[in-house]
Amino acid sequence: MTAAATTHQHTNCLRCGRKLTSTKSTATGYGPTCTRKVKAAAKAEIVATYKPHLVAKAEELIEQGGIVALRGRNVFQVVASNGVDTYKAARQGCTCAAGLKGKHVCYHRIAAHILSLAA
């Protein structure tokens, strides 16, 4: 992970779009209410559906602000693990290599699923 990725400050919540005021919120990109909603959604349905290591990667992606809603909280822009490439992800699919093959569910889709449940 690059230093630029860790020091990026968000001014609005990546989930609801409201203005962020606390230092912690601007660092993570989510306000306290949205953070709770995202975590609750992840635990409720996601843990029972997907493999634990993929859920952990999806939660990490969300915590680092690597996923942003594009259209009505159904389609998301996702940053790849290399920090350069981006994909479009939704509950139904992803434009990454794993998502295009459709053989396995990628963690980008799981992150999109978590955020769509938290909406």
Rank of each mutant, 00 (worst) to 15 (best):
T95L: 03
A90E: 02
A112T: 08
D85E: 06
K103W: 08
T86M: 12
D85C: 06
I110C: 02
S81Q: 07
Y87A: 00
V84C: 10
Y107I: 02
C96K: 12
A97C: 09
G93M: 13
A97Q: 15
K101W: 06
V105S: 09
T95C: 11
G93S: 05
T95W: 03
C94W: 10
K103N: 14
A112F: 04
C94Q: 06
R109W: 06
G83Y: 12
K88F: 04
A98N: 13
A97F: 15
C94P: 01
G83K: 10
K88Q: 09
G83W: 13
L100G: 14
V84S: 15
T95I: 03
K101G: 15
Q92W: 07
A111C: 14
A111R: 13
A97T: 15
A97K: 15
G83N: 13
C96G: 03
G99D: 06
G93N: 04
C106V: 11
K101M: 11
R91V: 09
C96A: 09
A89H: 04
I110F: 00
Y87W: 02
L100F: 02
A111H: 10
A97P: 15
A89D: 01
K101F: 12
Y107Q: 01
A90H: 06
C106W: 12
Y87R: 00
A98Q: 13
L100R: 11
Q92P: 01
T86G: 10
A112M: 09
T95S: 08
G93I: 01
T86Q: 11
G83L: 14
C96E: 05
G102C: 02
Y87Q: 01
C94E: 07
T86F: 14
A111E: 09
V105A: 11
V105T: 04
A98F: 12
Y87T: 04
K88R: 00
Y87M: 04
V84T: 15
Y87G: 07
I110D: 07
Q92L: 08
A89S: 08
C106N: 08
L100A: 14
C106S: 14
A112P: 07
G102T: 11
C96H: 03
R109A: 05
D85G: 03
V105Q: 05
V84W: 09
V105R: 05
Y87I: 06
R109Y: 00
R91F: 05
K103L: 13
A97E: 14
A97M: 13
R109M: 05
S81A: 15
T95P: 11
G102H: 07
R109E: 06
H104I: 14
N82R: 15
I110M: 00
G93T: 01
Y107C: 09
K101D: 09
A111P: 12
R91K: 12
Y87C: 05
C96P: 01
S81H: 13
G99W: 03
K88E: 01
Y87H: 10
Q92V: 06
K88P: 05
Y87K: 04
K103S: 03
T86N: 09
C106P: 03
T95Y: 05
C106R: 04
K103I: 14
D85T: 11
G99T: 08
V84D: 11
A89K: 00
H104M: 12
K101L: 11
D85V: 13
A97D: 15
Q92T: 03
K88V: 04
I110K: 01
A111S: 11
C94N: 07
A89W: 00
A90T: 02
K88N: 02
G83P: 05
A112W: 01
N82H: 11
N82K: 10
